[in-house]
Structures are given as structure tokens and as C-alpha cells.
Write a protein that binds this DNA or RNA. Sequence first.
DNA 1: TTCTGATAAGGTATTTATACTTACAAATAT
DNA 2: ATATTTGTAAGTATAAATACCTTATCAGAA
Lengths: 217, 217
Amino acid sequence: MEIEKINIAIVDDHTLFRQGLVKLLSESNEVNVLFDADNGADMINKLCNHPLPEVILMDITMPVMDGYESTKWLKDNHPDINVLALSMFEEDKPIIGMLKSGAGGYMLKQSKAGDLISAIKGIAHQSFFINELVSGKLLRNIQNNQPVKSQSIGLSANELKFLELCCSDYTYKQIADMMNLSPHTIDNYREALFQKFDVKSRTGLVISALKNELIKL
Amino acid sequence: MEIEKINIAIVDDHTLFRQGLVKLLSESNEVNVLFDADNGADMINKLCNHPLPEVILMDITMPVMDGYESTKWLKDNHPDINVLALSMFEEDKPIIGMLKSGAGGYMLKQSKAGDLISAIKGIAHQSFFINELVSGKLLRNIQNNQPVKSQSIGLSANELKFLELCCSDYTYKQIADMMNLSPHTIDNYREALFQKFDVKSRTGLVISALKNELIKL
DNA sequence: TTCTGATAAGGTATTTATACTTACAAATAT
DNA sequence: ATATTTGTAAGTATAAATACCTTATCAGAA
């Protein structure tokens, strides 16, 4: 049984590499290269004149419009097209950056053709393809985006308690009762926290506290 | 040649499950169960009286000290111990939550024994183990800081927009301007949402919206 | 048609929240 | 021993939020 080929496009400014890749993949009976482009802007033009590809192989460093921008544009304008980043860089920054921009996978240019085709097939079917290269980096990325510790903004015990009670439907008067303090004292805490968090309302305070992970819901 | 067994511990409050797992894994010639604990606090105690395990299998929901807290504690106090989350939940939230807390992998309790042992071996050698279950969620997590649009409480488009703008330092008047509506109309939205969420203040509304995951931060 | 529900908006009264100023005792620092 | 800071609390004034009530469209249903 004849399997439908996966339609792809290649965006890379290294002409020789790009054309070689076109040649190489064209020989495969699993993918079909619809077109190739020199950079993001070129790609946008050519998308109008060609059928939409399922997958786009995307380089990162390109003139005029680079891989990050191009990927973001695709996510906004053609969210169904899957982007597979294809680069020589194996550092955290470009990998995480491309994934954040919307790429569903990341392959190295030094990969074997078979692995690249596997990745293309994977991303076409699942809209993402996670390999060894990126899995660890992904994990480290979310683990490192971690708690801006409560020490960063010095809060007294009472201020913290007040802050927690603030994240609720209670009025300040009720909070004052709960903490066995005068509403005026609560008012002092409020003003101090407004200054420390640079906000002008209780809602802003609550949002900031949550963003800084000083309190949990 | 005899291969060194991987020393592990199991933390889970479901006694039968835990003991069964101990039995099951003890029969393996690849892992060695040093001890098991009922919850995080119990684990901390037992860590003092036993050799340090290389890997700890960690449940999430436990009394006294849950999996998130326990994992964080381990990362702070024994950063060399690898935590493999082991839970029945396959939702995004617990998975991302455990990984953020410091777990190096996540396995479902409904996994096969062989897969669990593979994961234990993987995490012992690489300090992380990413499977199909988590890879997609990890990717979506860093790409998608968007709210998971939930239809659970019927909100109109404008109400939802208002709700989002509510999670801020803006006054209602400013929000009215942004939405090109009269402050009175905004007031209608507010009242409608107060009823739907059963709250009496903007802060309560914001908290409820966040808890219901109608809004992201 | 008439009725109804959803949406937008005006009026007004009361309660909370916000802002700024002062005070005073206890703890700390100099 | 005398300032200085810190935590507590009061007074007052204004702005914002909350609560209720009413009106006007408009679209679709009875």
C-alpha cells in the first residue's frame, strides 16, 4: 500500500546545505519537499504560491527574518504547520528559544538522514517530537524557572500572614479581626506591601504575590 | 559479571500498594529497596537510619507531607538523590508540578513493572527520565503560558476579557476604557461574575478564577 | 405580534479601600 | 543616654468598589 508522503518545506540560508537536503529528502519515499526558502520573509512569500506544508524545517540564524521570528509568525498565521528546528547549535539557549517560539522539535544538522525523517514523521503525526537532545534541557528549563524565594522581598511574619489572608474574599476589617490587630495596623501592612510590590490596589498585590510565588493558592 | 543493584526507597501512603511494590521490585536483580515510608516526614526520619538511596519513588497525595513538599525537601537537602514521581494522575498539573518540584521523571502506577525498572535505571544513570507521558506536557508548558480555556462556567467573551483584565492593578474605570465600554457595563459584568463565582469582592473573584484555571498569571 | 433574555448603560447610596499624617511605647543602635 | 527604628494604632479625606434599581435596544422565541 502506498503511504501518503509528508509535505514539507525547508527554510535555511545556507544554499548548498539547503539544496543538498532537498535532494536527499526528495529521494525518500516518505517526505515530499514542496519548496525551500532562504529566510523567513522568503518563506512567507512562497507560502502564498504553494500548497501548505505539514512540516517546515527551520534554521535559526538567517538574514532578514531569523528562525525565532519565522516560527512565531507561523504559529500566529498557520498554527497547523509544525516547525522542526534544524540547527547546528546544541546549546540550551537556541533549543529552548526555538521551542518557546513554537517549534515542536529540534534536530541537529549533524544528524543522520534516517533520524531526521523519523523526526519529520513524528512531528507530523503528533505535532511534537522530543528526543534526548531536548528532553533534559526542557526539564532543566522548567526546574530552573523556580521560586523567586521569599527572601528576595523582605517581609515580616505578620506581613506575610496578612498577605496570605489578602488572597481571599475577606475585607480588611475581617482580616484585622482574624489577626487580632487594629484595622489601622492592617492599613500599615497594606501600605508597606503596596510600596514593596509597587502596586496601587489589593488585586495588584495579590497578583504580584502569586507571580513571585510568595503565596500558593 | 554481577551488576551493582540500584538502591531505591519508596514513599507512598497506600500501604498495600507500597508493600506490594517492595515485594515486586525486591525480586528484580536490578534494584534493591532500602526502605519504604508512609509520607515525606516518615521518609526524612528514615533517611537518617538507612544508607542513602540513589532513587526515590514518590507518590503525590500523602498525608502530613505530600510529594511536592517532599521532593523539594530532597532537592534542598539531598540533591544527589533522584526522585521518580509515581502516581495515578495523568493530568498536566500534577506532572508539571512534580517536575517543577524537582522530580527527574514521572511514571504512572498503571505502568508495567518492566517499564518502571527501566525508568529507575534511566533516572539513576542520567538523573532524568523523560517518557512520552511527560515530553509533550513539558513542551506545551514552556510554549503555552496561555490559559486552558475552560467552558465549565459559562462566560461570555466580554466577561472573560473583563475577568482577565481584572487580574491586574487596573481600576474598573481603566478597564472600561480599555474595553471601550461604559463603567456601568463593566459593573454589570462584575455583578454577574460575583454571582457566578459566589464572591463579594474583586480579590475573591480573581482568586476563584485562578483556582478554576480560567485565567493564567 | 408580544414576550423574553442578553447586552449596554444611567442613577444613586453605602461600604471598602486607599492615602496621608500623627503618635507612642518598645527595642536597637550609636 | 539619646537617637533611630519598628510595630502598633488613631484621625481624616478621597477614590474606588459594591449594591440595587431602572431604562433602552435588539434578536430570537412563543
